[in-house]
Structure formats: structure tokens, C-alpha cells
Measured scan of single mutants.
Amino acid sequence: MFKRLMMVALLVIAPLSAATAADQTNPYKLMDEAAQKTFDRLKNEQPQIRANPDYLRTIVDQELLPYVQVKYAGALVLGQYYKSATPAQREAYFAAFREYLKQAYGQALAMYHGQTYQIAPEQPLGDKTIVPIRVTIIDPNGRPPVRLDFQWRKNSQTGNWQAYDMIAEGVSMITTKQNEWGTLLRTKGIDGLTAQLKSISQQKITLEEKK
């Protein structure tokens, strides 16, 4: 169930391209415009997507990853294993993690069937560096609404905000991946996880038929 919630949630996290980005210092504006741009692209490019579902990787690479804190999220997933990894191991892992996100997020976007969304009203940021933004996803086919909290983090150097995690039903996506990959990290280390991520990233994206 959580895996499905995570995939549905990713439908609204794909941010804007650099040329049309919203105010990078306001995570609420980023979330709002990102959702609108993403849904528009999914709707307008269905012919290309249906002809070649792996085209979704391109959308992810162009529109999402430049505005997601990939390395920060990847380091959180590694936890204690990050500090013990060599620079070469980290570089290989982050490259594999990025390719994994292209496949995983692309597969999530393949679930698009006309969903709509509501974003919580903007709250004062103050001096906060981590801000959760509640998004409610509404399914046109009558499924119950899904309420999610996207975690946005302020870059201490640039002042810009980027998304790095999502919490559904009190469970963090980062925590879920830590639990899912924990045994592999304990037995085969970061190299074993890197190899698995490379394998997963090679899987073809498949479209979910409308139910």
C-alpha cells in the first residue's frame, strides 16, 4: 500500500525546468507551479508516452532531478554507511541512485490517469530550513484521497528550496528505503546496493492501464 502511495505522490513532485522555475526561495510556489507544469506535460505528451513509456525517463531527467536534492536524499538512505564509504564508492552510488530515480519516478508518472491535487495554504517560513507541505491527491475514479507531506529543505548556501522526502501515513519514503535496503547494505555494503540500483534502473517502464 505504501509503495502505491509513494508512486501516486511522485506525480506531483516533478519540479519546473530552470527556464520557467518559480521563486526558488518559496517552496509553496515551487510546489504549486511544479504540480501544474507536471500535470500539463503528462496530459499533453501522452502520444509520446504511450508510444514509448521510457520517454518518461527524459521527462524526469529534464523536469524533476535538477530540483530534487538527489545527493542529500541518497546520503540519508545510506545512513551510517555513508561515512564509511570511499569517495569513489559515493560517486558510483550517487550515479546509480540518480539512474534509479529516473526509472522509479518514471514508473510513478506512468500512473497518471487524470488525477488532480490540492496544496495546503502557504504558511510563514520564518527562519525554518525544513518545511512540510501537505498535498491532497484526488483520484477521478473514486479512490479515497491521498494526503501527503512533502519535505522541502532550504539550501544554506543559495537560499533555494528543494524537495527531498515524502511522508505518507506517518511513514517517510527515506525511512522506507532504509528499511528495504538495510539488509543488503549490511551483507554486501554500498557496492552491493550500487549494483542492485544499476540493475533496477535497467527495467523498462510500463504503463498502468486505467481501472
Score class of each variant (00 low, 15 high):
residue 149 D to Q: 03
residue 106 G to D: 02
residue 205 I to R: 03
residue 82 Y to K: 00
residue 25 T to P: 09
residue 65 L to V: 11
residue 120 A to I: 15
residue 114 G to V: 10
residue 62 Q to V: 09
residue 148 L to Y: 02
residue 60 V to G: 10
residue 4 R to L: 14
residue 161 W to E: 01
residue 109 L to R: 01
residue 104 A to I: 05
residue 121 P to V: 11
residue 99 E to N: 14
residue 185 L to P: 12
residue 196 Q to Y: 09
residue 95 A to K: 08
residue 108 A to W: 02
residue 49 I to V: 14
residue 20 T to D: 11
residue 197 L to F: 14
residue 98 R to I: 04
residue 16 L to G: 04
residue 54 D to V: 08
residue 4 R to W: 09
residue 187 T to V: 09
residue 82 Y to N: 01
residue 116 T to N: 15
residue 118 Q to F: 10
residue 37 K to P: 08
residue 135 V to F: 02
residue 75 A to V: 02
residue 84 S to T: 11
residue 131 V to K: 10
residue 60 V to H: 01
residue 133 I to G: 02
residue 132 P to A: 15
residue 9 A to L: 15
residue 207 L to I: 15
residue 123 Q to K: 06
residue 63 E to I: 01
residue 3 K to S: 02
residue 129 T to E: 07
residue 111 M to V: 13
residue 204 K to E: 12
residue 165 D to W: 00
residue 210 K to C: 13
residue 99 E to M: 14
residue 77 V to T: 09
residue 191 D to F: 04
residue 85 A to K: 02
residue 138 I to D: 06
residue 98 R to Q: 13
residue 83 K to A: 09
residue 164 Y to M: 07
residue 40 D to L: 08
residue 176 T to H: 01
residue 3 K to I: 04
residue 142 G to Q: 07
residue 29 K to A: 12
residue 41 R to M: 07
residue 42 L to M: 15
residue 197 L to D: 02
residue 64 L to H: 00
residue 13 I to A: 03
residue 191 D to C: 04
residue 111 M to R: 03
residue 188 K to W: 04
residue 165 D to G: 04
residue 99 E to V: 11
residue 67 Y to K: 04
residue 189 G to P: 03
residue 194 T to C: 05
residue 41 R to E: 03
residue 129 T to R: 08
residue 49 I to C: 14
residue 146 V to D: 02
residue 15 P to T: 14
residue 101 L to Y: 06
residue 190 I to Q: 07
residue 113 H to M: 04
residue 125 L to P: 09
residue 210 K to A: 12
residue 90 R to Y: 03
residue 92 A to G: 06
residue 75 A to I: 00
residue 191 D to N: 05
residue 106 G to V: 11
residue 107 Q to G: 12
residue 204 K to C: 11
residue 21 A to Q: 09
residue 200 I to Y: 06
residue 200 I to R: 05
residue 173 M to C: 01
residue 39 F to R: 01
residue 73 A to D: 11
residue 20 T to G: 13
residue 32 D to V: 05
residue 42 L to V: 15
residue 130 I to L: 07
residue 186 R to I: 03
residue 179 N to M: 04
residue 208 E to H: 08
residue 131 V to L: 12
residue 161 W to R: 02
residue 167 I to W: 07
residue 101 L to W: 15
residue 194 T to V: 05
residue 190 I to S: 10
residue 78 L to S: 03
residue 102 K to W: 12
residue 8 V to D: 02
residue 127 D to H: 05
residue 104 A to Q: 14
residue 144 P to A: 09
residue 74 G to L: 00
residue 69 Q to N: 08
residue 99 E to I: 14
residue 178 Q to M: 00
residue 96 A to Y: 15
residue 170 G to I: 00
residue 29 K to G: 10
residue 13 I to K: 01
residue 192 G to N: 15
residue 115 Q to F: 02
residue 25 T to W: 13
residue 19 A to L: 02
residue 171 V to D: 01
residue 7 M to T: 04
residue 9 A to W: 14
residue 94 F to R: 11
residue 111 M to K: 01
residue 136 T to C: 08
residue 67 Y to W: 04
residue 136 T to S: 10
residue 23 D to W: 06
residue 142 G to D: 05
residue 113 H to I: 06
residue 101 L to F: 13
residue 190 I to V: 11
residue 151 Q to I: 03
residue 52 N to L: 03
residue 138 I to H: 10
residue 17 S to R: 12
residue 6 M to T: 03
residue 187 T to W: 08
residue 110 A to T: 09
residue 133 I to E: 03
residue 169 E to M: 06
residue 94 F to K: 14
residue 2 F to C: 05
residue 153 R to W: 01
residue 138 I to V: 10
residue 80 Q to N: 04
residue 190 I to G: 05
residue 128 K to F: 13
residue 79 G to L: 00
residue 176 T to S: 06
residue 164 Y to I: 07
residue 95 A to R: 10
residue 181 W to C: 10
residue 151 Q to C: 04
residue 142 G to C: 08
residue 118 Q to T: 12
residue 208 E to I: 13
residue 47 P to Q: 13
residue 123 Q to D: 05
residue 166 M to N: 07
residue 187 T to G: 08
residue 176 T to F: 03
residue 161 W to C: 05
residue 127 D to S: 06
residue 70 V to E: 12
residue 61 D to I: 02
residue 105 Y to N: 02
residue 28 Y to G: 09
residue 29 K to T: 13
residue 90 R to S: 05
residue 102 K to Y: 15
residue 208 E to F: 11
residue 185 L to Q: 15
residue 105 Y to G: 00
residue 210 K to M: 11
residue 202 Q to Y: 15
residue 69 Q to S: 13
residue 140 P to E: 15
residue 135 V to G: 03
residue 203 Q to C: 09
residue 157 Q to N: 06
residue 105 Y to V: 00
residue 203 Q to P: 08
residue 106 G to N: 01
residue 113 H to E: 07
residue 211 K to D: 06
residue 53 P to H: 09
residue 136 T to W: 14
residue 85 A to S: 10
residue 145 P to E: 06
residue 163 A to W: 00
residue 11 L to H: 00
residue 149 D to R: 01
residue 11 L to F: 10
residue 28 Y to T: 13
residue 72 Y to M: 01
residue 171 V to C: 05
residue 66 P to L: 03
residue 42 L to Q: 12
residue 53 P to K: 07
residue 143 R to K: 05
residue 150 F to R: 00
residue 133 I to T: 08
residue 173 M to T: 01
residue 13 I to M: 13
residue 24 Q to A: 13
residue 90 R to Q: 04
residue 165 D to K: 00
residue 18 A to D: 15
residue 14 A to S: 13
residue 55 Y to H: 09
residue 64 L to A: 01
residue 169 E to N: 06
residue 90 R to T: 04
residue 145 P to N: 09
residue 112 Y to C: 06
residue 22 A to D: 09
residue 143 R to A: 05
residue 140 P to D: 15
residue 7 M to A: 03
residue 191 D to K: 03
residue 93 Y to V: 05
residue 172 S to Q: 00
residue 6 M to F: 11
residue 68 V to A: 03
residue 134 R to W: 00
residue 85 A to N: 08
residue 156 S to K: 03
residue 95 A to E: 11
residue 192 G to M: 14
residue 28 Y to A: 08
residue 98 R to K: 08
residue 7 M to R: 03
residue 150 F to S: 09
residue 102 K to T: 15
residue 127 D to A: 10
residue 133 I to V: 12
residue 27 P to M: 04
residue 77 V to G: 15
residue 53 P to L: 04
residue 141 N to R: 09
residue 125 L to S: 08
residue 79 G to F: 00
residue 64 L to Y: 05
residue 35 A to Q: 08
residue 102 K to A: 15
residue 95 A to P: 13
residue 9 A to Q: 01
residue 19 A to G: 11
residue 126 G to D: 11
residue 131 V to Y: 08
residue 80 Q to D: 00
residue 186 R to A: 00
residue 107 Q to C: 10
residue 2 F to M: 14
residue 38 T to C: 07
residue 119 I to A: 08
residue 136 T to A: 11
residue 90 R to F: 01
residue 67 Y to V: 07
residue 160 N to P: 01
residue 209 E to F: 12
residue 113 H to K: 12
residue 116 T to A: 15
residue 11 L to W: 06
residue 73 A to W: 01
residue 100 Y to R: 01
residue 171 V to A: 03
residue 27 P to L: 05
residue 15 P to C: 11
residue 41 R to N: 04
residue 1 M to L: 01
residue 182 G to L: 12
residue 179 N to Y: 10
residue 137 I to L: 06
residue 145 P to C: 05
residue 198 K to W: 13
residue 162 Q to T: 03
residue 128 K to V: 09
residue 88 A to E: 12
residue 116 T to I: 14
residue 40 D to S: 14
residue 209 E to P: 09
residue 205 I to L: 14
residue 164 Y to S: 03
residue 168 A to D: 03
residue 118 Q to A: 12
residue 160 N to K: 12
residue 36 Q to C: 11
residue 90 R to W: 03
residue 72 Y to G: 00
residue 6 M to Q: 00
residue 156 S to G: 05
residue 49 I to T: 14
residue 205 I to S: 09
residue 162 Q to V: 03
residue 78 L to F: 04
residue 203 Q to W: 09
residue 158 T to V: 06
residue 183 T to L: 06
residue 201 S to T: 15
residue 81 Y to H: 09
residue 85 A to Y: 03
residue 209 E to T: 08
residue 167 I to Q: 15
residue 209 E to Q: 08
residue 100 Y to I: 13
residue 124 P to G: 09
residue 151 Q to K: 06
residue 16 L to V: 13
residue 183 T to D: 11
residue 178 Q to P: 04
residue 115 Q to S: 03
residue 171 V to T: 02
residue 177 K to R: 11
residue 47 P to Y: 07
residue 67 Y to P: 01
residue 197 L to A: 14
residue 5 L to F: 11
residue 72 Y to D: 01
residue 209 E to N: 12
residue 154 K to D: 02
residue 167 I to S: 10
residue 41 R to L: 03
residue 174 I to Q: 07
residue 54 D to I: 10
residue 117 Y to K: 10
residue 107 Q to L: 13
residue 163 A to H: 14
residue 147 R to E: 01
residue 84 S to D: 14
residue 147 R to D: 02
residue 43 K to L: 09
residue 98 R to E: 10
residue 19 A to F: 06
residue 63 E to P: 00
residue 77 V to D: 09
residue 120 A to S: 14
residue 125 L to K: 15
residue 161 W to N: 00
residue 69 Q to C: 01
residue 143 R to F: 07
residue 151 Q to V: 04
residue 123 Q to P: 08
residue 200 I to Q: 08
residue 44 N to T: 12
residue 148 L to E: 02
residue 131 V to Q: 10
residue 71 K to D: 01
residue 74 G to V: 00
residue 41 R to W: 02
residue 173 M to R: 00
residue 198 K to T: 09
residue 91 E to S: 10
residue 22 A to P: 10
residue 59 I to Q: 06
residue 49 I to L: 15
residue 52 N to R: 11
residue 133 I to R: 02
residue 79 G to M: 01
residue 164 Y to R: 00
residue 16 L to K: 02
residue 91 E to G: 08
residue 34 A to P: 03
residue 157 Q to W: 04
residue 141 N to I: 07
residue 133 I to K: 01
residue 127 D to K: 03
residue 105 Y to L: 03
residue 117 Y to R: 10
residue 48 Q to I: 04
residue 108 A to R: 00
residue 70 V to S: 15
residue 70 V to I: 11
residue 135 V to M: 04
residue 153 R to S: 01
residue 34 A to V: 11
residue 65 L to G: 06
residue 157 Q to A: 09
residue 94 F to N: 13
residue 42 L to R: 02
residue 84 S to Q: 13
residue 130 I to Y: 06
residue 88 A to I: 10
residue 204 K to V: 08
residue 131 V to S: 12
residue 30 L to P: 07
residue 188 K to E: 11
